[in-house]
């Protein structure tokens, strides 16, 4: 029973982090219909800046800088590359982000070299006792942070001008433009938000508690699990991203314990395949219909 409680808390802790990443995907997809394959490299970039600056700025300052710069990098990718090719279809733009991902990832992995730094200084490897059960502090903090961020996101998405503009654009791009919504601004903010979320996520991923491995190419692979999370829930559903993220986290934690560490990586994708066969647009995604 005790292990099971630990596993579920682990699962939700990991799931909260995956939900942050998946939400980023979904926000970008809703605004632009582009799937951002460069998400993993944004994660690495944020983490790398923490490593590079924490000696001078202290961990907290470095963490803030890392989060902000992941957001800025996402913004730059959108402004400098994607917005320049407005005629290209979302499919080609997704391919373009693969190119971006290769370059950023390879450069950061080169800079990291053989060092695999852990970057969750404030919460990593400090277990907490709750009612006789030992829990990872990283997962608890991740759950709190994710809850706060996701709630803030949904409030903004529902009530702020940006949220309304964003939903309008997702609904109908031309109509949104006609009523005076600046498409470029909505798109740019979507990328900024996704980048910030990725920057927060890496502070939990590259820890001993979460992955047992420091910032490296492996971090990029872990971030890839946000793909099944976003797809599971439905690429155009923000609520789906949260459900997908938690599902992926739970599947990962349970299958690591009950089957094997090697199987856990593919278990997440297997669950995604099963869901896709039953519901091709994910659990909460809008079904595509074809008009002739």
């Amino acid at each position: 029973m005790e292990t099971f409680v630990q596993l579920v808390v682990n699962g939700f802790g990991k799931g909260a982090v995956f939900a942050l990443l998946a939400l980023g995907f979904v926000v970008i997809f809703k605004a632009t219909e582009v799937v951002n394959f460069a998400h993993g490299s944004l994660v690495l970039f944020g983490g790398y800046l923490v490593v590079a600056t924490r000696e001078t700025l202290g961990w907290a300052g470095a963490a803030v800088l890392g989060v902000v710069s992941a957001g800025v990098l996402a913004l730059l990718v959108e402004r400098l590359l994607l917005s320049r090719s407005r005629l290209a279809d979302p499919f080609s733009l997704a391919l373009l982000t693969i190119g971006v991902d290769v370059i950023i990832t390879e450069e950061i992995v080169r800079r990291l070299g053989v060092s695999l730094p852990f970057i969750g200084d404030a919460w990593d490897a400090q277990p907490v006792q709750v009612g006789g059960v030992t829990l990872f502090r990283t997962h608890l903090v991740a759950m709190v942070v994710a809850t706060v961020l996701i709630t803030a996101f949904f409030i903004a998405f529902r009530y702020s001008n940006w949220g309304v503009a964003m939903r309008a654009q997702a609904e109908n791009k031309e109509a949104a433009a006609l009523v005076g919504i600046r498409s470029s601004r909505v798109t740019a903010t979507a990328w900024l938000v996704a980048g910030l979320l990725a920057g927060v996520a890496v502070l939990f991923i590259a820890t001993q508690d979460f992955s047992g491995a420091g910032l490296s190419r492996g971090t990029h692979s872990i971030a890839l699990a946000a793909f099944p999370a976003a797809i599971l829930g439905g690429l155009d559903s923000t609520a789906g991203a949260i459900v997908g993220g938690l599902t992926v986290g739970l599947v990962d934690a349970l299958s690591t314990h009950y089957v094997s560490f090697a199987f856990a990586k593919s278990a997440v994708f297997l669950v995604m395949l099963v869901v896709l066969v039953v519901r091709p647009s994910g659990l909460f995604g809008t079904r595509e219909s074809t008009r002739v």
């Binding site: 979302p90 690429l235 990586k265 091709p280």
Partner: peptide
């Protein structure tokens, strides 16, 4: 699987096979 999915959904779904291959190679 492929027949039911379109575009990007298919791309990500096909990514699953690489992970299955990784596990298969080890197991």
């Amino acid at each position: 699987v492929a027949g039911r999915l379109r575009g990007i959904y298919l791309g990500v779904a096909s990514l699953a096979l690489v992970f299955l291959g990784l596990y298969f190679g080890q197991a």
